[in-house]
Design a binder for these strands. Structure first.
Lengths: 200, 200
DNA sequence: TTAGTATATCACCGGCAGGTGACACCGTGT
DNA sequence: ACACGGTGTCACCTGCCGGTGATATACTAA
């Protein structure tokens, strides 16, 4: 039993990742992946059945959003809820900013449905907010809604600044802009939270 | 002088719009547009020079964001600023929701740079917020920043719900969800605004 | 009528896409 | 020595893509 097949599978998966990161999802195809991996394309069909199968395998193997577990431990127990929510959102966005692959997948998700984009979307959802909501850490539904909206807004800004295409001069890749945005969000979260429980 | 050329140009532009709306931007190409318009593709080169030229012409001819002018008149003079900002954001998003073409262009803008996406982006920017900021209607920079973030967040949610791919069950195409979101945003805007000018 | 110009049609090219069948290589168990 | 299954290479097909040249069909101006 020759175990070269495992190595080949790995090269194909690596090639796919490399290709998505460098050329974007529009450049993904059987020929392109095979070329990138330095492998005959027939092997893609042999080992993954089809392009769909390859995408599925890639999604299964890859971790896109490994931040939440460690993040929750990092937040002090006595921190107010709005601070927790703010931290989660900002950290999540920062993780996205540090991962060109995730950015590309987020774009892909908006224009097409395939095994990879679907699984990626689920993972992002779980990774960011659902874990918190399900565990009841933030019981206020409105706070969750607001957090999701802000999270999506920052995500969108990150995706735009990727192409030097900032919205309203909010180029999230610039540190000073990011600092300002984070300050505004923190203040807003606090204000919103207090306005809902004025007696506390 | 035969004026058929104008009619042909119109058919090509219409075909492009139809194609983007129905098939998405990934399906756009010389052959596809010509087929959709029922016209030989050589005419695209003759009248627009290239695919780029066609996209430019399409962007020049089309109005993507015709709402702001009328909208500003519609808002009462004495309305507080946070209400103005909220209204602008929500109306803008609603307009996006009613325009599948604009949604597709917003996605396209995230993955590629071409004359159409660039001009579309500028128009969206001007249409939504810049006009206000430039005219000093909302002088508070932080309010603008926050509004842009929220606007982007809702835009992102609209783009996702397009593919039945809601984020955290926030399916913005459902009326009850939209209502709730609008309520939360209005409350947040008010709270944030008041927290900045507690003496007023 | 005739020459010229704008308009539209057609055929064709090279290139790359997705996909498949045939075959060569090689380690292994019999 | 042999057959066999896992592995990889190659050639080939069909179809669509972007792009171009030649040519037919008007309409116009002299």
């Amino acid at each position: 039993m020759n175990k070269n097949s495992e190595k080949t599978k790995y090269r194909i998966l690596k090639g796919l990742e490399e290709l998505i990161t460098r050329e974007g999802f529009t450049g993904v195809g059987v020929n392109a992946v095979a070329r990138e991996a330095g492998v005959d394309k027939v092997l893609i069909y042999r080992y993954f059945g089809s392009m769909e199968g390859l995408l599925r395998a890639f999604a299964d193997e890859k971790e896109f959003c490994p931040l939440v577990a460690g993040l929750l431990n990092d937040i002090p127990e006595e921190a107010p809820l709005y601070e927790v929510a703010t931290r989660i959102v900002l950290e999540h966005v920062r993780a996205l900013q540090n991962s060109p692959l995730a950015q590309e997948l987020a774009c892909w998700e908006l224009s097409e449905q395939n095994p990879l984009t679907v699984l990626f979307g689920k993972e992002m959802e779980n990774g960011a907010m659902k874990a918190l909501a399900d565990r009841g850490i933030i019981p206020d539904e409105d706070v969750i809604t607001l957090s999701v909206i802000v999270l999506c807004g920052l995500q969108y800004l990150v995706l735009r600044s990727r192409n030097n295409n900032p919205m309203m001069d909010i180029d999230y890749s610039k540190p000073e802009t990011r600092e300002k945005v984070e300050r505004v969000i923190a203040a807003m979260m606090k204000a919103f939270f207090k306005s809902r429980e004025p007696l506390k």
